[in-house]
Design a protein around this nucleic acid. Structure first.
Length: 534
DNA sequence: TTCCTGTTGTATAC
DNA sequence: GTATACAACAGGAA
């Protein structure tokens, strides 16, 4: 029987380094490259307007690239399980190919589809190409569980050798296309998806494989920059991005992580002196790999409850604070500028994410990281399920990172790299005439200064919703308490998880009594604070 | 059990 | 720019 394939694009929205697309094309008489607009993502995906635009741009570009190899993209709306069963029959399909996806919804969906394919006598070919390695191999090599530190991840992947080299584009992809293809299978625009294009922000990072590869080229040409790149030393509030902004392209698979990895590797080979993980550009790809791996095997990875690697913290519920944070009106210009850039442009620097995430959670507002994660999920072009959950756990000191006493200052942190507050003036124009000495703390400006700057605090720009210096030590103590209340991990499986056993108290009597004193004092502070809050 | 390390804290002193 | 106190966490290696 002649081979007739469907290649199902989900992530991996590219024709370079796409082994499952190659598998679809091999010896086939007909290949149908499809993308299914699954209503699940509209209902549960929390996709903001800018990311919708990015996706549609990406699909248009994918269609254009497929045309170059004599094919077309077929975009179909519907539930994948139903769409595929129709198409198997309609197109007399023998083979289905797709890229492996490790996210929970994808795993369930794909298991369903595999069953349907089996019932229909359709062969299924799945390839790993979204991550550098097959995350299952990393888990296996680590003894059946995910590595929980970056160091450990590094050790494990070093045992696996270099990630596979990217595969070449398919040279031909024979696709029968009807005259009215665009009418039936064309890429929709925002309006036809009932989205309002006027709500989009400026398009600084257009979607698509073509843009991804040219952006990668631009970045890799800066050899010296690549070889000296140290992530923690890049600036969160520069007016031009200080990092690559390849993340949205990696998220959708417009860019293959392996392609990027091996491009870096070539550059490193030619330049003896270069930075190394975790801070280097290669290190950034390994962070992605790390979080994908942990996310692929950890139950309830995107929530606190029933997530075995997440510390249970009794976060506050405060809808007003949450809304102020989301909408960029906390009264802290650095925080509000970042949240404005996020909402309007869909990308913010990693350290800017740190600053606002710390502020929302353990630093200032003491609101659950899950709430912050939802907001990032909506606004970020690069919102990536594993990375988003992992980084929110990191910043809230719920997992991976535990030094909860290291708190970012919403005033001091931004000053380090933008003394004049140009970034704040750009994203919060209401503050653009505030004198530099007050730009990070405009509430401290004398009224006359505020009048002259055309920005009255409390009227034109909000007063701070919390006092950072007062709330910070209180929150640190609340975190200490939450850590202390953790179930003892060393106890047996039977008692484990019941939350009865407590970690031993501090070692010496002296410290013990000192600690007890501080804690009770702080507890009183917390109680007083709560009362005042009401 | 102890010791070391951990991408990216802040404020202060020199 | 670099060192240090702050008050002190967890995971993992030794």
């Amino acid at each position: 029987m002649a081979k007739r394939s469907i290649h199902w694009f989900r992530k991996g929205l590219r024709i370079h380094d796409n082994p499952s697309l190659i598998a679809a094309c091999e010896n086939a008489v007909d290949v149908k490259p499809i993308f299914i607009l699954d209503p699940w993502f509209s209902e549960n995906g929390n996709v903001g307007i800018n990311r919708w635009r990015f996706l549609l741009q990406t699909l248009l570009d994918l269609d254009a690239n497929l045309k170059k190899i004599n094919s077309r993209l077929f975009v179909i709306k519907g539930k994948p399980q139903e769409v595929l069963i129709d198409l198997f029959k309609k197109w007399n399909i023998t083979t289905l190919t797709y890229e492996l996806d490790t996210e929970p919804y994808a795993k369930l969906r794909d298991a369903d589809v595999d069953d349907l394919a089996r019932e229909c006598g359709v062969e299924v070919i799945r390839c790993v190409s979204h991550t550098l390695y097959d995350t299952k191999r990393i888990v296996d090599k680590n003894g059946g569980s995910a590595p929980l530190t970056y160091k450990r991840l590094q050790t494990v992947v070093s045992m696996l050798g270099l990630p596979p080299k990217p595969v070449a584009e398919p040279s031909k992809c024979p696709t029968a296309v009807s005259m009215n293809h665009d009418q039936h299978y064309g890429v929709p625009d925002l309006k036809s998806l009932h989205k309002n294009p006027n709500e989009c922000g400026p398009c600084l990072f257009p979607g698509g494989e073509t843009e991804a590869l040219s952006r990668l080229d631009r970045m890799m040409k800066k050899t010296n920059w690549v070889c000296t790149f140290e992530k923690p030393k890049t600036e969160p509030n520069s007016l031009q991005p200080s990092t690559t902004v390849l993340s949205p392209y990696l998220k959708f698979g417009c860019l293959s992580a392996r392609t990027m990895y091996h491009r870096l590797h070539e550059i490193y080979k030619q330049n003896k002196k270069h930075t190394a993980p975790p801070v280097s550009l290669e290190g950034q790809l390994l962070w992605r790999e790390f979080f994908y791996t942990v996310g692929s095997v950890t139950p309830n990875f995107d929530q606190m409850v029933d997530n075995p690697i997440c510390i249970q913290i009794p976060w506050d519920t405060n809808v007003e604070f949450l809304a102020a944070w989301k909408q960029g009106r906390t009264g802290y210009p650095f925080i509000d500028a970042i949240m404005t850039q996020l909402r309007e442009e869909g990308w913010i620097h990693h350290l800017a994410r740190h600053a606002v995430a710390c502020f929302l959670t353990r630093g200032d507002l003491y609101i659950s990281w899950e709430e912050g994660k939802k907001v990032f999920e909506e606004y970020l072009l690069d919102a990536d399920w594993s990375l988003n959950a992992a980084n929110w756990m990191w910043l809230s000191a719920s997992s991976f990172f535990y030094q909860y006493f290291r708190v970012y200052s919403p005033i001091a942190f931004g000053k380090k790299t933008d003394k004049d507050g140009s970034y704040i003036r750009k994203y919060l124009p209401v503050l653009k005439n505030m004198p530099t000495q007050y730009i990070y703390e405009p509430w401290t400006a004398p009224l006359k200064v505020q009048e002259k700057a055309g920005c009255i605090i409390g009227k034109d720009y909000p007063k701070p919703i919390v006092e950072h210096d007062k709330i910070r030590p209180i929150n640190i103590q609340r975190m200490a308490q939450a850590y202390k209340n953790r179930p003892d991990k060393s106890c047996s499986g039977e008692t484990k998880g019941k939350g009865q056993k407590r970690k031993p108290e501090l070692k010496t009597e002296e410290r013990n009594s000192k600690k007890a004193k501080t804690t009770s004092k702080t507890n009183k502070k917390i109680t007083d604070f709560m009362k005042e809050g009401k």
